[in-house]
Design a protein around this nucleic acid. Structure first.
Length: 287
DNA sequence: AAGAGGCCCTGATAGC
DNA sequence: TGCTATCAGGGCCTCT
């Protein structure tokens, strides 16, 4: 599901719901996510107050009152659900309202608060939880990731010099989290369309002008997607069950065979596998 | 060192 | 109906 905009939507709603609340109980039904959930996960979280929920790239960062952090990555199919309790201080399963949005299978982690619980669901189990003990280790955790598109460090100078001598195609670089972090397969295609660049083009061949368009459109597309509540394909929803709407504004993604949306362009949207990820682009206006 | 490819996993859908 | 193959929003690891 989740690229940076979708994770940001989850962050916003999660932050509102659990900020300043104390963790009462943690239940792990399946530890075997992308990485095994550590055995001290429950005790690390229990009785901690949630200071806030932040985000870096596609990672959610839950700050705890013990100065530690709980990291959550949603992988491909992770979703967070919120379930309200109608009996205060009663944690029997039946005391929670059945949420229509809560799947019956693959609810791997439940974190309980006084009047609600959050449930982590992930059919493919590509997502993961991590415990980070302090701020120093948190910074270290992300040291190898590139800047987010919004970061002032993600600028023309950075991009143009990064691409020098690089043989790899531009599409793969947008997905390379060590170059820029937060862009995924949907938004990579959309950014390249707006930038009029062919996804197969070698990075070293990009002009300064093209690099500038990459920088601007990366910021633009992701911000726009956040404003529209993210993209709902398959069944992404925010934790309250509301769908995003950015998928209505896709210019190329999942539009194979359809007319190019650029005015006066007679092109057609093509689909091509690049490093085993489907890539959509206009065969005429993306050079 | 950069870059390509495989792999982790389940579910939905298409095609026979 | 039931089988098989293919494809999904990610990222880590290995090999060349």
């Amino acid at each position: 599901m989740p690229e940076l905009p979708e994770v940001e939507i989850v962050r916003q709603s999660l932050d509102k719901k659990i900020i300043q609340k104390k963790v009462k109980k943690v239940i792990i039904r399946n530890r075997n996510l992308r990485f095994k959930i550590p055995l001290n996960f429950e005790s690390f979280l229990k009785n901690q107050k949630i200071l806030n929920v932040k985000r870096f790239s596609k990672y959610l960062i839950i700050s705890l009152s013990n100065k530690g952090y709980c990291l959550l990555h949603l992988g491909m199919s992770g979703t967070v659900h919120i379930i309200y309790n109608y009996k205060k201080n009663n944690f029997t399963n039946t005391s929670f309202y059945n949420s229509p949005s809560l799947p019956t299978k693959h609810n791997h982690v439940e974190i309980f608060f006084d009047n609600l619980k959050i449930v982590y669901n992930d059919p493919r189990r590509f997502g993961f939880f991590e415990i980070i003990k302090n701020n120093k280790l948190l910074i270290k955790r992300f040291i190898n990731l590139g800047p987010e598109p919004f970061d002032y460090k993600f600028n023309l100078k950075y991009v143009f010099s990064f691409f020098k001598e690089k043989e790899k195609n531009i599409k793969n670089f947008l997905l390379d989290q060590n170059f820029v972090s937060g862009i995924g397969n949907i938004y990579a295609s959309e950014i390249l369309f707006l930038s009029k660049i062919n996804p197969m083009k070698k990075a070293k061949l990009l002009t300064k002008k093209e690099c500038r368009r990459i920088v601007l459109n990366s910021k633009r597309v992701l911000l726009d997607a956040i404003k529209k509540g993210g993209s709902t394909i398959r069944d992404f929803k925010n934790i309250s069950g509301t769908k995003g709407s950015f998928q209505k504004y896709f210019k190329v993604y999942q539009r194979e065979g359809q007319r190019c949306k650029r005015l006066k362009c007679d092109g057609n949207v093509k689909k091509k596998n690049i490093s085993n990820r489907s890539t959509f682009f206009c065969n005429i206006c993306q050079k």
